[in-house]
Amino acid sequence: MSNEKPEQLQSDVIESVQKVPFFKLSLAQWSLHRSFRKKEKDLFQFAPIAKEMGFEGVEYVSMLYLKEIKKLGFDKVIDSLNAMSELSGVRNVLIMVDEEGDLASPDEADRNEAVENHKKWVDAGQRLGCHSIRVNLRGSSGAKEWEEASVAGLSRLAGYAADKHINIIVENHGGFSSNAAMLVEVIQEVHLPNVGVLPDFGNFCMEKNEDNTCAGGKDYNRYKGVEEMMPMAKGVSAKSYDFDEKGNETKIDYYKMLQIVKNSGYSSYIGVEYEGDRLSEEEGTLATKALLLNAAESLK
């Protein structure tokens, strides 16, 4: 029998409730992409790995499975992932789709081909019970052409996804898509309930130099960008690169960023996406998770 007084027990309960974050945690598979590509980790064990690391949900990266799909077949790969997530008690949150063509191509034939290529991932998302697939709209033409093509590509793919109850969400992922104001304008013009965005705390470089550094004046303000995107966000990606001795991200003020997310009224999954190389993938992932939870405790 506990010797604690009722007042102390009540205080402990209140403190425990206060520590519950306003969001749920998912793990973006890209955080561990080196380990998966080197075969140090089994792609089909992603869900149990995420569960063991303390995550409630998983976010798949389509291109990591291309070899397995070619070898085993698309359906078998998706069914295997679904079985493992069910066994692990982990929620399949979304699929990050890459290398399936340019949905913002100014060439209608190329754009339509990209739409067709993405459809199988919409189907996969439905079978896995995901709420969304993430797509790219980096752009390869002028701003006006990009906007028109993006609206056309998104609208067509979203029309297919609507009946399957899958959202099509766009990440700020380079090029014009990293200009949050322009991306928001595209989403508003599409004006469909199953089209939204996946704000990423990083990825606000609109133009890179040959050495992969951001060109001068081509880095969109990350806090302004996330704030602009949050009203139409159907997911959030907590990108991280490195941490100081206090556990804070060295490039991104997570306290400021999370306050923006909370102020928007968002309360669903935040995906951890570690992209650094100083810490191991596991260390960086867990450091990002810890920072999110610590920052959440301090918010107003």
Rank of each mutant, 00 (worst) to 15 (best):
N221H: 09
K208P: 01
E227L: 06
L72P: 00
M84S: 14
K224L: 14
V190M: 12
A143C: 04
S150I: 04
V261Q: 05
I252C: 08
V20F: 01
G54W: 00
S26L: 05
C214P: 02
K51M: 02
D79C: 09
S178A: 15
L299T: 06
E86N: 08
Y274N: 00
E275P: 04
D244Q: 01
L103S: 10
P6T: 09
L25D: 00
D163M: 05
L25I: 03
L128P: 06
V151C: 12
E281V: 02
L66N: 11
A149L: 10
Y269F: 15
Q29A: 07
L183G: 07
G196L: 10
V17Y: 11
V170N: 10
L286I: 02
L25P: 01
A238D: 02
E227Q: 09
D253F: 10
V186Q: 08
L137Q: 07
E145Q: 13
G73H: 10
Y255E: 11
E99P: 00
D110W: 04
G225Q: 09
L94G: 05
A215T: 15
L64S: 03
D200C: 10
G175C: 12
F176R: 02
A114I: 12
Y254C: 01
K224M: 12
E227T: 03
R37A: 03
E145K: 08
K51F: 01
K218M: 15
S85C: 06
E210T: 11
